[in-house]
């Protein structure tokens, strides 16, 4: 019996194609990296030599040299301290923990809200405006209050920050869980009805798998949100051990040591991208779908 399917070309042909693809991707990455650096240095050079002050004045403090920023990572964080890179990685790990816990809490809460809203129209009409409105509450303002509320309960000192991180995380997850569950193929639901399947069975076996693409798209947004939430949460909480503390610290000394803050930004960016990539890779293995057909 002939097999119908997307079986590939001959073996050596496939290998060749894969290698070329990888080279292409690496090439584009290097190109983008080079272009960004060139843009930065070019902009800097141009504004330095012409002395233009719009949109902002460029000097060695506004835009340190790229080499200085990179080399700063290897210099000591402060006098007689380990290199900045080491310090920043430690801080990043601290923030990462808060963000990861916040992501987990936010994802669970978000999914729970999505499921409840899916099954109960009344709950949805009652609470959805507040769920949406909750995101307009400036978390920076309630962060100190969360710290006070949760402090002294025997919880680790960074737990309030994780809660704040969860606050930014739960919303996209809730919205997309609801959308995913609501948009299940009605024919599949009819099939399950013909099997007299229980609501729970249908939820677990059909609705959830169908909404995985929506869930993961929310998780990707939530990954970034959890890191942002963790950083913002640290700012007013006088927590020194995370990236938020590092940003505050180096912002204070910016006029003396601008490269340090730029270097911190780079590490923070890498952290955000790392979280995102973890979710993206997980998605690749978990969500199995037919290839899409778009122009």
């Amino acid at each position: 019996m002939r097999r119908v399917g997307y079986t590939g070309a001959s073996d050596c042909g496939t290998e060749y194609v894969v290698t070329v693809n990888v080279l292409k991707r690496v090439g584009i990455f290097l190109l983008v990296l080079a272009a960004t650096c060139a843009f930065y240095m070019g902009y800097r050079q141009l504004f330095l030599s012409t002395g233009w002050t719009w949109p902002f004045k460029v000097d060695q403090y506004a835009m340190p040299r790229l080499q200085d920023i990179v080399s700063r990572l290897w210099e000591p964080a402060a006098t007689e301290q380990p290199p900045l890179a080491q310090l920043l990685v430690q801080r990043a790990l601290f923030t990462a923990r808060e963000a990861a816990v916040g992501f987990a809490i936010g994802a669970l809460v978000g999914i729970a809200i999505g499921v409840v809203f899916h099954f109960s129209n009344l709950m949805r009409r009652g609470f959805q405006p507040y769920v949406v409105g909750s995101q307009t509450v400036p978390i920076l303002a309630i962060a100190p209050m969360v710290v006070i509320w949760l402090g002294g309960q025997g919880l680790p000192v960074w737990m309030p920050v994780a809660v704040i991180s969860a606050f930014l995380t739960f919303f996209p997850v809730a919205i997309n869980t609801l959308r995913g569950l609501d948009s299940t193929d009605p024919r599949k639901l009819e099939l399950m009805r013909s099997y007299a399947a229980s609501e729970w069975s249908t939820l677990w076996r059909v609705k959830f798998p169908c909404s995985l693409p929506y869930l993961f798209s929310a998780f990707k947004v939530a990954a970034t949100a959890s890191v942002v939430g963790a950083i913002i949460g640290e700012l007013p909480s006088s927590i020194q051990d995370g990236l938020g503390g590092a940003i505050l610290n180096f912002a204070q000394y910016y006029s003396l040591d601008p490269s340090a803050l730029w270097a911190t930004n780079i590490i923070a960016a890498l952290l955000g991208i790392l979280f995102f990539c973890i979710v993206a890779v997980t998605e690749h293995f978990v969500v199995r779908r037919a290839p899409e057909n778009v122009a």
Partner: peptide, 12 residues
């Protein structure tokens, strides 16, 4: 780029 916590850039 949208995964970067751009907020860290605020002091700059």
């Amino acid at each position: 780029a949208s995964a970067i916590p751009i907020i860290a850039f605020a002091p700059i």
